[in-house]
Design a protein around this nucleic acid. Structure first.
Length: 136
DNA sequence: AGTAAGGAAGGGG
DNA sequence: CCCCTTCCTTACT
């Protein structure tokens, strides 16, 4: 079976996730349709370590668009490669998990369970401060 | 090409 | 808790 280099890049990403490793850059195929803003958001999001989270607002700030937290939300909502690009590690400034996929009640079960499975600590429905990662 | 609508947010009152 | 602002994308005109 022959496969495109783009596909194998994606497959490798999934293998690494399955092994608990993660990847350093989003597969190029996933970014072909992305604007500069989206590229920066995804490149940064992929650096969030397993077991940690950051917020829409901080992410917006480090990619050079302070105040664009809502735009970052849009970017995550249209994430071309969920899990490989760990959109579940981006949460609200209140440290509540926020929305995920079609779970728009601000308390996504799926998102919280993904995070817990990665070792993120919760304290009364909020993520513990010790699990917040600052993108720098 | 111009514009209006709206979102996985955030800060303020 | 509600309302207004912000920045970006998308859908129409």
């Amino acid at each position: 079976m022959t496969r495109s280099s783009g596909e194998s890049e994606v497959i490798e990403g999934l293998h690494r996730i399955y092994a608990g490793i993660g990847v350093n850059h989003p597969p190029e195929v996933a970014l072909m349709a992305a604007s500069e803003f989206l590229r920066r958001v995804y490149e940064t999001a992929i650096r969030i370590p397993k077991g940690k989270v950051t917020t829409y607002g901080r992410l917006a700030k480090v990619v050079g668009s302070k105040g664009a937290s809502r735009a970052v939300g849009n970017a995550m909502a249209r994430n071309p490669l969920p899990l490989v690009i760990p959109c579940h590690r981006v949460v609200r400034s209140t440290l509540q998990v926020g929305n995920y996929g079609r779970e728009r009640n601000g308390r996504s079960r799926t998102k919280r369970e993904l995070l817990m499975r990665e070792g993120v600590q919760f304290d009364r429905g909020r993520i513990s401060q010790s699990c917040v990662w600052d993108p720098f």
